[in-house]
Design a binder for these strands. Structure first.
Lengths: 299, 299
DNA sequence: ATAATGTCTTTTATCGGGAAAAAACATTTG
DNA sequence: CAAATGTTTTTTCCCGATAAAAGACATTAT
């Protein structure tokens, strides 16, 4: 067993949803772009759809025969990338406590525990290392640096530097730049979410990421844009495990975002700076309060 | 053939140099820390030294019998890490021209060309990706973004942001911090180099890196410190292939460094800012002039 | 009894192989 | 003849295996 066919399974599931909408499927290349996979995978999908009686397939004609039932879908967990599986396991371990700074990370043990090959774990750790939470000892183990207060402070320091600069660049963008339309629709989404915050507060984190990424992109600097991956990763797991006052926090954040958006639209650099700093400050505080007090640091 | 013994060979070569200095070698653990390898490797080294008649080895006594001759050493090229070999090959290709932005990078082809396994090439590309020069297409090839003017500008923008902040942090460090001694000795090295610049100008790049790393470390921010790896990498190859006016450029840089050091020692934030910006500006210009004019960008 | 040496075990670094997925090429169809 | 389908080749992703290197344990020497 060398490679799981999760790409196929995931695309198949997404393909099933198309069947509800039409009576006949488009051409193979079109389906490929639609699902983001190669034609090879498209054909494997079509073959199975034919086999399970979902469609009749003959060359160009792909007629829908019936609507997909729940058990036509592949189970969710089979559609995950190995990288996602490893990341989740690793983060669970890291956040489950007992992950003291200075602790060694063992590739072989991790691989055995997760049930994957060492190569995948190694590749994951290399990719993960840019988040600044682990460090490699040459020819030897990795060292966990720990999700500490210091880490959060270093992270937010850069974040603030980058975002303040990006926000200024954003406000300076010409009126005809497409970003203003993007900002308008994000503003609408924020207003909608604000009005239904009591029930939909958990949808904020996704909106948050899209909003900040839009701003960072205005920097036109790949290092700034890429750095948002670090922030997004941290906030993603942070949101997952710190549910205290989630509704209140998100409610505050939404209103800060709206003020921030208004400032950007005013194109007044002073106002942008104030609104941006205010939001970043409260984001930092949220993150900091969720981190347990300084523990003794091993070795 | 699964793993080359370059660690052993490199440590062996370094070990040979110890033989000139003493008549008997220290204990195995001591040698281990001295050479930065495990005792296992130390014992392999000692075994060979005994075999080739360099030492007499009996338990704790390791008496030097003769001085090492040139052909006792392993050839330089056998002491390189696979990662170094791959990086060199890759950079040579990248800088040899014909490496247009948008070009695809093929893991298999690279591996075959360099004569290594695909795993090593993959790991290299993942590590290398943080330099912002290549980008991965999921389940598909890597894309070269090219060593362009835009890249250099984005890189220097961050560098300047980070270094100005670090320099300010440096100047604010308490008098009893050990960095001031480090700065003093770097200053001495600069003066020495300045006085012998006509013959030793090519030693500047190494000094340059140590100087800037010292400053960046004052930020106490891992992201800032780590970012210097990107700068160091770029400048390393930049120095290698752009030899135009190397002596003049380095002469100017040394004097800028000395002014910068003086500013730091004055602990006057205004002066530090001026000296730092001045040097960074000329560093940026040097880098920019070495980049060929904008070429047509593929796709 | 501490620190070294001797021996054994575990982990890392790297390769080759094989299934999944992409990509390239050849053929057909509207 | 352009765009689709059919077929073949290439590449990516991932595993298991193995030598190098690290690390752990046992024994000996000062």
């Amino acid at each position: 067993m060398s490679k799981s066919n999760n790409v196929y399974k995931d695309a198949y599931n997404r393909g099933l949803r198309l069947l509800d909408e039409t009576q006949s499927l488009p051409s193979e290349p079109e389906l490929g772009t639609l699902l983001g996979v190669s034609r090879t995978t498209v054909r494997t999908i079509l073959a199975r759809m034919e086999e399970t009686g979902l469609i009749a397939w003959n060359k160009r004609s792909k007629t829908v025969l019936r609507a997909p039932k729940p058990d036509d879908f592949f189970p969710e967990e089979e559609t995950d990338t190995l990288a996602q599986i490893i990341e989740r396991s690793f983060m669970r371990r890291l956040l489950a406590g007992g992950a003291e700074a200075g602790m060694q990370i063992n590739e072989l043990e991790l691989a055995r525990e997760i049930g994957v090959g060492t190569t995948s774990v190694r590749e994951f750790l290399i990719r993960f290392s840019r988040f600044g939470l682990i460090e490699k000892r040459r020819n030897s183990h990795w060292v966990l640096k720990g999700f500490t207060r210091a880490f959060a402070l270093e992270l937010t320091e850069i974040r603030e530097m980058f975002e303040i600069r990006s926000a200024a660049a954003f406000a300076a963008l010409p009126q005809d730049s497409p970003v203003w339309a993007d900002l308008d629709s994000l503003e609408d989404e924020h207003r909608l979410l604000a009005s239904e915050i009591t029930t939909r507060f958990n949808e904020f984190s996704e909106l948050d990421e899209r909003f900040h990424r839009l701003i960072h992109r205005a920097s036109h600097n790949r290092f700034i844009v890429d750095f948002y991956d670090v922030i997004a990763m941290i906030f993603h797991y942070h949101y997952q495990w710190n549910k205290a006052q989630e509704r209140e926090r998100n409610e505050v954040a939404v209103s800060e975002h709206l003020a921030y958006i208004a400032a950007l639209k005013s194109r007044d650099l002073g106002k942008v700076d104030v609104a941006c700093r205010k939001h970043l400050k409260s984001a930092r505080n949220t993150l900091l309060t969720s981190i347990p007090e300084t523990r003794r640091i091993a070795s």
